[in-house]
Amino acid sequence: MNAVISQRIAGKAAPGPEEGHARPFALRRFALTLLLVAACLAAGGTHDACAATSLVHKRAPEFVRTDLDHKRLDLNAYRGKVVLLNFWATWCAPCQVEMPSFVDWQNKYGSRGLQVIGISLDDDPALVRSLYGKLKLNYPVAMGDVKLGNLYGGVLGLPVTYLIDRHGMIQAEYQGEADLGKIEMQLQLLLPSH
């Protein structure tokens, strides 16, 4: 099944740490734009499919939850980092295909400012805790609910993943079993250079 990929790149960057490197940033942004368009077309996206989501190019809806380690999980606290926000569930097979890569990316890119956050849409937290330990997830996971799902436009099918830039703007949305290679390329372009 082709993943339905709906994504756009922000046309205007908010002021930030890259201001002193305007040209490289502009080039990276242009490259990311091309990548996102290519990914959309490669996924067989029609115009509607590629522009359907209303959240891309908008500020990521803020939320505060308590994660599985009983710590406060405030999306706003990750401003300045690139956030990969993943909605998943233990009954979702495609989610479990993706999650080991998210663990790898957190290890690989965490020092450059990547933060993966998981939101489980399970009904039973016990199953989530079991998976959390078995897959050795190295990023915070909190239980979702209807309110949080609605905040993100209604999460009606999994997996759904959002790529949020350092300014809190959603740069891409991936629905269904996404192309992990493309997500990795896209998040790399949002991370600051070495």
Binding site: L121, G144, G149, G154, V155, L156, G157
Partner: peptide
């Protein structure tokens, strides 16, 4: 016969939640 949370988010009118088949 899927997720109760997803049912609460949206479902087909008149349908009833009957438990996760898995």
């Amino acid at each position: 016969v899927g997720s109760h949370l997803l049912f609460d988010e949206a479902h087909i009118p008149g349908s009833v939640y009957a438990g996760a088949g898995s």
